[in-house]
Design a protein around this nucleic acid. Sequence first.
DNA 1: TGACAAATTTGGAACGTTCCAATTATGTCC
DNA 2: GGACATAATTGGAACGTTCCAAATTTGTCA
Lengths: 347, 347
Amino acid sequence: MTRARTTVVDIAHAAGVSKSTVSLVLQGSPLVNEKTREKVNSVIAELGYVYNRGAANLRQSRSKIVGIVVNDLTNSFFAELAVGMDLVVQSAGYVQFLAHSGESVDRQREVIASMRENGIAGLILSPARGTEAVDLKPLIDSGIPVVVVVRNLPGARVSTLLSDNYTGARAAVRHLVSLGHSRIGFMGGFLDTAVFAERLRGYRDALLEAGITVDDRLVIHSAPSRAGGVAAVERMVLLTDQPTAALCLNDAVAFGVCDGLRSAGIEPGKGFGVVGFDDVIEAKTAVPALTTVSVDPQGMGQRAAQLLLKQINAGGNEQESLVTSVRLVVRQSCGAPVKNNHLEELA
Amino acid sequence: MTRARTTVVDIAHAAGVSKSTVSLVLQGSPLVNEKTREKVNSVIAELGYVYNRGAANLRQSRSKIVGIVVNDLTNSFFAELAVGMDLVVQSAGYVQFLAHSGESVDRQREVIASMRENGIAGLILSPARGTEAVDLKPLIDSGIPVVVVVRNLPGARVSTLLSDNYTGARAAVRHLVSLGHSRIGFMGGFLDTAVFAERLRGYRDALLEAGITVDDRLVIHSAPSRAGGVAAVERMVLLTDQPTAALCLNDAVAFGVCDGLRSAGIEPGKGFGVVGFDDVIEAKTAVPALTTVSVDPQGMGQRAAQLLLKQINAGGNEQESLVTSVRLVVRQSCGAPVKNNHLEELA
DNA sequence: TGACAAATTTGGAACGTTCCAATTATGTCC
DNA sequence: GGACATAATTGGAACGTTCCAAATTTGTCA
């Protein structure tokens, strides 16, 4: 049933030319006569020939495949990032291996090895927590361009594309301060990522420049997910001197914080100001609409893919580090603090 | 800089054996002597050899690559579906091309063609709206197994894996009826998908068997997304005789409906019962926690991948159609109807 | 028409693996 | 020690393409 594939030789034979000519037609070479081209193309259509890119890759020792490894596809930020990459990768005639590491360094290593065996021309990696620069050493040494996105990887000879976490967080907190908030929390995330560290630094600096002393009890760690946001609020309400607003590590945490506040009988955006980070697609339609720092994940994915393709085509291995600017999008979830609200009553 | 790849011949030379022996070692053949195997393996490690799967595929004319095409990766249902597939695909030693069609049939055609050129061993497809059975004809005729998931494709000679939309929708509506609701809406989705049709049928039958007449004005079409849910509520509040509850096409719509209700000053789960469909990961942590029909997207992805791998290994092309059972998960969002609530006041 | 240039076509080697058939090494038994 | 079975190894062809150098055809000009 799986009868022998029709190959370039079959086409050549049927069209009365040599396989070299067919190959030339296939790659759109200007060397071939117009009439011959037409003839060959019609035979190709007639026999239902499908190009064997694997054979071509073997001969040329370069492929049209890029690898993309993302740490958590179920987080819409990363899903959108992947969609952005997909867009430019596909339209450049490439195809992508897309894998999900699920924050596991082991799994990440495996999929990268597998992609390497399959001959990727380049890799875009959003590293799993705990990834080390040496993990990428062999890949990089073999001359395959690598672009690291979202989280950085100090010490690795790779190009990186990060968002301006520090400035974004600082702008968000400044805004909360301008609304009159003075006890502001930072919710979600763990110490081990650079993203967390940078956003926290922005948060701290904004407080300091406003003359507000930083209270470390208001920095509440939790998983960087919706469930983590709920958990953070549960711990927040146990504090004696509660915040009236919070910057969240990302939008997922922010949504969880809203959920948690409601469970605690607090209306997000009224009794408590919530600001997210990322500007995921749902941020706009949520109720209350989420004030957040827009990172444009899809656009970031596109830029990352463009950067990678550029490096693949250039062949050179000079690294480039880009920081994409972010902007605060003010919506409803960051309310001004309410005097004598139930939070203050509780305190 | 990209110096010549080390190949099986280099290994053979360095280990003092023939390339055939190295090949045997590579595929873990029992034919090779233990000492030789060790020697070869150590040389492999030493020279940093990386296997060229492309060359192997060429020779064997079968690959370890599966294609996965999903219509909307930004919808968490599909993202989780993809993660489930990824899990089993990877651990079976395969690697996946994962592409996003964005509901575009053209784009879908392109990516499938591209995957075919790259020699996929099988395809899992969650078809874009408007996909026809003939679109897959050439692929199927070439003997490549195809598994269609989530949406079905009548007339195509493929295996399918669908969830039991009819039963799930009926169970959800029965539950709403048992809570005392009698005006129940159906929100989100368009007529052109089978998923919509089946869920709607389940909704209708449940109403009929409860002796409730079906009012077509309560079926409100909209995009199957969070934004679509918001839009549906906006249209709902214009009705003269409003529903007290709704079954939503999927969880994304249900979240949007909750958002829309809040904007309209109605508290989901209190003044209005909302039931979703899919049981996306956020359904549990949302506030109010979403009552929904659990489809277990990740598990479904796993089953789809297993089904495909089975067909790839069997080589036969007999199709199999599975319907995965679903169950209603009752949480907080489906409240009992409130007497004299503002909805009734409006009416 | 002959000479030359330009345009077009072509055979064969190469890419890195697997597989077959054949060969060589090793072990066992009387 | 020879005959035989078994274990282990091996050379070469094949997979479907690209690329090179060379060959062939076509066109132009005096």
